Computed example of a mutant assay.
Amino acid sequence: MTTRNLTALDFNETIEGNGIVLVDFWAAWCGPCRAFAPIYDELSAEHPDIVFGKVDTEAQPELAQAFQIMSIPTLMAFRDQVLLYAQPGALPRQALAEIISQVEALDMDEVRRQIAEQEAAVK
């Protein structure tokens, strides 16, 4: 699958309507973003079952603000609407492939149980 440009209009729908969604927050003027883009695109072609989204922080400042993006590129990984990974910095191919493998391997029932426990402890 190719990467898909996400906007404020379709961001939530994309997260809610797909199992695994990776999101690259980027900008055209950002050198590390441009260096990371071919790696991201290459892995999107190798994982057609995963949605690879891109948010242009210049065109979508409200999304960048909502996710408190302070540095780009920032990669986020969602699975079953749960944010599992959010880190700034361009990744080498192997690191991105490892993140994808880890997200795919997670037991989401266990993740949801842990989230519920944390939320209960806060109350």
Rank of each mutant, 00 (worst) to 15 (best):
M1S: 15
T2E: 15
T3S: 13
R4S: 10
R4N: 11
N5Q: 15
N5F: 11
L6I: 08
L6W: 11
L6N: 09
T7A: 10
T7K: 14
L9S: 15
L9I: 05
D10I: 02
F11R: 05
F11P: 01
T14F: 03
I15C: 04
E16H: 10
E16W: 04
N18P: 01
G19H: 08
I20C: 05
I20T: 12
I20M: 08
I20G: 05
I20L: 07
L22A: 05
V23M: 08
D24F: 11
D24Y: 13
D24R: 13
F25W: 12
W26E: 11
W26R: 13
A27S: 12
A28T: 15
A28R: 14
A28I: 09
W29R: 10
W29H: 11
C30L: 08
P32L: 10
P32T: 07
P32A: 07
C33M: 07
A35E: 15
A37C: 03
A37T: 12
P38D: 13
P38F: 08
I39P: 02
Y40C: 02
Y40K: 05
E42P: 00
E42Y: 08
E42N: 10
L43G: 02
S44C: 01
P48H: 06
D49Q: 13
D49M: 01
D49I: 00
V51N: 06
F52E: 06
G53Y: 07
V55F: 05
V55A: 01
V55I: 09
D56H: 09
T57H: 05
T57Q: 04
T57L: 03
A59E: 15
Q60S: 04
P61T: 02
E62A: 13
E62T: 11
L63T: 04
A64D: 04
A64V: 02
A64M: 03
Q65E: 14
A66Q: 14
A66H: 05
Q68W: 06
I69W: 07
S71N: 14
I72L: 04
I72P: 01
T74I: 03
L75K: 07
L75E: 09
M76P: 00
A77T: 04
A77K: 05
D80V: 00
D80H: 06
Q81Y: 04
V82T: 11
Y85N: 12
Y85P: 00
A86H: 13
A86R: 15
P88E: 14
P88S: 14
P88T: 09
A90T: 07
A90K: 11
L91G: 02
P92W: 10
P92Y: 09
R93E: 15
R93M: 07
R93D: 12
R93G: 02
Q94W: 08
A95W: 10
L96W: 13
L96F: 12
A97S: 12
A97I: 02
E98M: 12
E98A: 13
I99A: 04
I99D: 09
I100F: 07
S101K: 15
S101V: 00
Q102F: 04
Q102W: 07
V103W: 08
E104S: 06
L106I: 03
M108E: 09
D109G: 07
E110K: 12
V111D: 11
R112H: 13
R112S: 04
R112W: 09
R113M: 08
R113L: 10
R113F: 08
Q114V: 01
E119V: 05
E119W: 06
A120S: 14
A120P: 01
A121Q: 14
A121M: 10
V122T: 14
V122P: 00
K123G: 11
